[in-house]
Amino acid sequence: MRNPANVMEAHGNTCCFSEASFNRLQVMMKDRVMPESSHLFWEGDTADKLFYIKRGRVKVTKTTDEGKELILYMYQSGDLVGQADPFFGTKHSFSAEVLEDSDIGVIDHTDLELLICQHCDFAIDFMKWMGSHHRITQTKFRDLMMYGKPGALCSTLIRLCNTYGEPHGDHILIHKKITHTDLSNMIGATRESVNRMLSDLRKKNAVEYDNGMIVVKDLEMLQSVCHCELCPREICRI
C-alpha cells in the first residue's frame, strides 16, 4: 500500500508554471468574489477567459439532454480553470459551478495572448499546463471506458485520495464529504449501482466510513481493480 503520508492534498494544476511565469499571470488577473452555487460560466458561453482559484472549490460538469449530470473535474485552490485552445473565441462545452464561497482571479484571453507573444518561457509553461490538463482528461476517460463501473469507481476513489486524502492511522481519510450521488455523477453510473459497489468494497474491507467521510483501507486492492498505472499525483486527481 502506498504510504498515506504521501497521499495529501494534490498540487494545484498551475505547478506547470515557473515562478516568473506565474507572477506574470497574476499581474493580469482581475479579482472576483464568487458566492456558493454561482457559476463561473455555463455551457454555450463564449470561452474568452481563464479562472484561477485563489480560495474555494469549483466543479466542472457536462449535462445531457435528459438532465443527467457528469462531473468532469473538481477544482480547488491553486487550480486554473477554463477552456483554452489555439482557437480562442470558441464556446464552453461544459459548465463550472462554485461549490463554496470563492476568491477567483479572472484572466482575459486577450491578456493571455499578449503574455504568450511577449514571453517565450511563459508560452512553453502554458503548453505544459495544456498538456497536463489533456492527460488528466485522457486518463479519466480511460478509467471510465476500459474497466467497467467498478474500475471507474476505484479509480475515482484513488483520485479522491490524491486530492483530499490525509493519513488516518494506517489508512487514508478523504476529508471532503462525497455523497453517493456525487460518485455516481463522477463515473456516469446510477446511485443504486454506486451503493452496491461501495457495499461490496466494504465487505472486502477496502473502504469504510468515518462520520460520513470515506476511509480507504486497502489502496492496493483499488489499484488492482482499475489496473492503476501509478500516474503522478498531478495527473491522478479528481
Rank of each mutant, 00 (worst) to 15 (best):
N13H: 04
K91E: 13
E192H: 09
L99T: 07
F17H: 07
K203Y: 04
V81F: 02
D101V: 10
D65R: 15
G89D: 15
E192N: 13
V225M: 12
Y73F: 13
V194S: 00
S95R: 05
C15W: 12
E166C: 06
M1I: 00
Y147N: 15
E100Y: 00
A206K: 02
K203T: 07
D45I: 00
T46L: 12
Q118D: 10
D48S: 11
M221W: 10
D79M: 01
A5S: 14
D108R: 14
N185A: 07
P86Y: 01
D111G: 13
S21E: 02
R55I: 07
N211M: 04
C231G: 10
R55A: 14
T181S: 15
G188V: 11
K62W: 03
R196N: 14
G148L: 05
V106T: 10
M74F: 00
K217S: 04
P4D: 09
M8T: 10
C154T: 07
S224P: 00
Q223E: 11
V60G: 05
S132P: 03
K177F: 11
G78L: 00
M28R: 10
H133L: 04
E43H: 05
F141L: 12
A123Y: 06
T63G: 07
D170S: 14
H171A: 06
S193H: 10
